[in-house]
Computed example of a mutant assay.
Amino acid sequence: MKFIWDSAFALLVVTGSLLGLVLPFGKVATAVGVAPLMWAFVVSFGAGTVLLIALLMRGERISLNGQKLRYFFGVAAISYAIPNIVMFSVISHLGAGYTGIMFTLSPVFTLVLSILLKVRKPTALGIAGIAVGFIGALVVAWTRGEAGRPAELHWVLIGFCIPLALAAGNVYRTIAWPGGAGPIELAVGSHLASALMLVIAMLATGGPHFAVLGSIPLVVAAQVAASSLMFAFFFRLQAVGGPVYLSQIGYVAAAVGLISGMLFLGESYGLLTWLGALVISAGIAMTTKAQVARSASSM
């Protein structure tokens, strides 16, 4: 466990794999009638509660101040509530694997925002990687989901809000990270803040309907377990790897989503979708190489 906790690469693989499990679990839940708001609440409330119990059992506490509260609710909205609602809304139209491909665009979007907000200066290779990733995104968008079952274009465009929100969250968490705060504490606070926001949203739209969760208790338990573990590692990866490296969990998550979608959910994707995913991967490789080269030159 210590090796994983101290290794950016190991954290990337573990966190991305656990994130990828959200996709098939979410598709199963929405297929039986669980509303996107409700399943997003399950993710945040489940993860926040389990991690809070773990924190208290270790004898630690959450200390609150204005900076942390702003951080909790900022992260809750940008990183969890918005992308999860979008993801669980589009997944039944696009498929788990195709929705997972949206995650692969997060590194490219993160680098764009980092450059625009002057968190990171652009390099020629980084800009080229962004361009290649964008071309791959256009190819993927053109295929519109599963083979033989093209989704309406507006669902594809809505799906692109996922990597945009994730990228904004990656940058925000870096520039707003409260001094002296630990990763588990931040995960607990931001997830419980997200759960509160989602409850308010459900009350405003007709009230939460928890009874439907009783039809899939094992899926709920598996989702809570996977989310709790994922977010414990997620904030550690943020601290160890930084925002652009962290954003590459989308690459691992997409692979898990594609494989699980095909093996367990009967999904299939055309050659053009795979080609687009390959082009996006090339863009990610270029932006990653640019980041590594920049880090090496600054040492």
Rank of each mutant, 00 (worst) to 15 (best):
23 L>K: 07
56 L>Q: 11
280 I>R: 00
5 W>K: 09
226 A>D: 01
20 G>I: 08
160 F>R: 03
30 T>F: 03
235 F>I: 06
187 A>V: 04
235 F>E: 12
138 L>T: 11
244 V>D: 04
293 A>E: 15
299 M>L: 13
201 A>W: 01
99 T>R: 08
166 L>M: 13
257 G>L: 10
126 G>E: 06
50 V>Q: 14
74 G>E: 12
8 A>N: 11
128 A>V: 09
178 P>S: 06
138 L>E: 02
74 G>S: 06
169 G>N: 10
183 P>D: 03
218 L>C: 02
64 L>I: 14
12 L>Y: 08
22 V>S: 15
128 A>W: 00
126 G>D: 01
176 A>I: 08
268 S>T: 15
213 L>I: 08
86 V>M: 03
80 Y>G: 02
277 A>Y: 03
44 S>L: 09
63 S>T: 15
146 E>G: 07
207 G>P: 11
3 F>M: 07
123 T>P: 02
159 G>E: 03
1 M>T: 05
212 V>N: 01
229 L>I: 04
96 A>F: 06
114 S>F: 00
271 L>G: 08
216 I>M: 10
158 I>P: 04
177 W>A: 09
216 I>Y: 07
37 L>E: 02
100 G>N: 04
61 R>I: 06
143 T>S: 14
155 W>D: 03
294 R>Q: 15
29 A>I: 08
103 F>G: 11
217 P>A: 10
166 L>C: 12
22 V>C: 09
237 L>T: 13
94 L>A: 10
217 P>H: 12
44 S>D: 12
15 T>D: 03
21 L>C: 10
110 T>C: 06
31 A>F: 07
95 G>A: 01
183 P>F: 03
36 P>W: 13
178 P>C: 09
255 A>R: 00
163 P>D: 01
281 S>Q: 08
59 G>Y: 00
149 R>W: 03
280 I>L: 01
279 V>R: 00
99 T>V: 02
49 T>M: 13
200 I>G: 14
144 R>P: 01
199 V>E: 04
203 L>K: 11
200 I>V: 15
237 L>P: 11
197 M>F: 09
101 I>K: 09
176 A>S: 15
225 A>Y: 02
83 P>M: 04
39 W>P: 01
210 F>E: 05
64 L>T: 11
186 L>G: 04
115 I>G: 01
299 M>P: 01
198 L>W: 04
